[in-house]
Each structure stands twice: as structure tokens, then as C-alpha cells.
Amino acid sequence: VPVGPALVYRELDCDDPETEQAALVAVDYINNHVLRGYKHTLNQIDKVKVWPRRPMGEVFELEIDTLETTCHVLDPTPLANCTVRPQMQHAVEGDCDFRLLKQDGQFTVLFAKCDSSPDSAEDVRKVCPQCPLLAPLNDTRVVHAVDAALTAFNAQSNGSYFRLVEVSRAQLTPLPPSTYVEFAVAATDCVAAEVTDPAKCNLLAEKQYGFCKATLTEKVGGEDVAVTCTVFQTQPLIPQPQPDGTEAVGPTVVADPGVTVPEASPDLPAAALVVGPVVV
């Protein structure tokens, strides 16, 4: 590389419309690639540097803060209609580094890295002294509440048997002793009323996801469970490009390339924002 003048980055205001445009592309990228949990929305742009890129274009180096919304990533509700989770529900923030290429007026994500963390207990206590904090997803009471709620939901269902996809958040309340959980489910090829061995049920090729909120309340001599699930419209199969250039549609093909749904992972922290592979 011939020695030339040092690259100089362009100073841009963090609230400049061009910076905001880049940040919104970054947030869109997060929500299309996040593997679990909730959609995030832009809260603040921390830093921006715009580097010239040879032979053409510019690279935006961006640091942004996001906040968790109440929309699950599998929920098709547009981000603009999603509510930011209030502090009293124990908010979660995302801290992201992005590099985006701007060429011909279009942004492309080159690099993305996000970490998420829940608000501190002190902050939650300041706004709501009695509000429950986020609980570990592998807490036995959480696991039991999800199991009881899903069993109750399937028992009332006259359609497909739904299987757990992930536990998304949980809170424990001491008085009365109760466990609040939110979890994602997916329809299987079994009929709920006829299931004898859930292990033999398979997820539908045309994925149908749902999102449930449940409260399990402990009582003397038993427990009460209240569960509400929203089942989203089916996600049609999208032809996937094959190595030989053909396109295939079949049950082995991932239906939604943007969102990969892993098996429930109780060892993940309560507020993991996992961003998938980056586009380079």
C-alpha cells in the first residue's frame, strides 16, 4: 500500500439525520438477527465516526444504546408499535458497536456486536420499591411455572400441541408467593387433546409461533396457574439458495432465515441479547 495521507474521519453530530438513519438500520439488523428474547429499540447514539472507504463509499463506526421492548422477536408486530419495557418491570438495555457501509445512499451492516444487561436492582427499587426483579431462567420455580402453564394451555387447546421454544423472562414475587413468566412456544404436528408422548411431536414445517404470559400462585395445598398465549400467524417457507444454485423448499429448510430459534437454554442469563452471524 503506497504511503499516503492518513485517513481522516468525518465528524458527525450524534443526532444528525444521517447518523440516525444509520442507527435505525443497525437496530433493524439487531431485530432481524436476534436469536431470542425481545425486540430492541434505539435509545441513544453514543458515538459516530465516518471513515472514507476506498474505492468508494463511507464506513460509519457507531456506538448505540438500545432498550428492550415488550415485543418478542417472534412477534410480527412492527417495532414502531412495540412498547419500551418500563423501568418498574426491570428494563434491559443493549450496548452495541456497529460498522455500516454507506454506498449509493444504502447502508449495509459490516460488523455488529451487542451486549445486553438488565437495569440495576437499585434503579428498579428507586422507581418501584416493591416491584419484583428479573429471576434466573433456570430457577426451579421458573421452570416449574413454565411447565405448569404450558401444560394448562395445551389442556385447554382444541388445536395443535404447542412445545416450548424458550423462556424469555421471569420474576418472583414473595407475597403472595407467585412466579410470573413469559415464554415462546411453537405448534407441532400433534393434536393437543391426543398427545400421549410429546417427544414424538415435531415442529411444523410452516412454523407457527406463540408467546405466553403466565402467573403461578402458590396456595395452601396447591397452586393456581393463569396463562394467556398469543399465537402468531404462520411463517411461510422461504426458498433457500442451495450450493448448486437451485432453490429448495422442504421440511428440513429453516423457514425464517432472519431468526434462528434455539432450543430453550436455561443457562443463558435472563437478559441475553444474542446477535447472529454478521454480514461481511
Binding site: 429499540t41 453514543d46 423501568q87 428494563a91 437495569d119 434503579d123
Partner: peptide, 27 residues
């Protein structure tokens, strides 16, 4: 700023290029 004593200097807007505005709340 160094100015002549008899020249009035208009107070310009305070520039805070970064970080940008907080849209919801800071945690």
C-alpha cells in the same frame, strides 16, 4: 474567547455533538 471589551459577543448555542439525545430513559 478573546474579544475587544467594547464588542458585544452573542452567546452561541452550546454544541453537544455526542452523545445524542435520550429517547426514552437512561439506565
Amino acid at each position: 474567547k478573546v474579544v475587544q471589551p467594547d464588542v458585544a459577543v452573542a452567546a452561541g448555542p452550546v454544541v453537544h455533538p455526542c452523545p445524542g439525545r435520550i429517547r426514552h430513559f437512561k439506565i
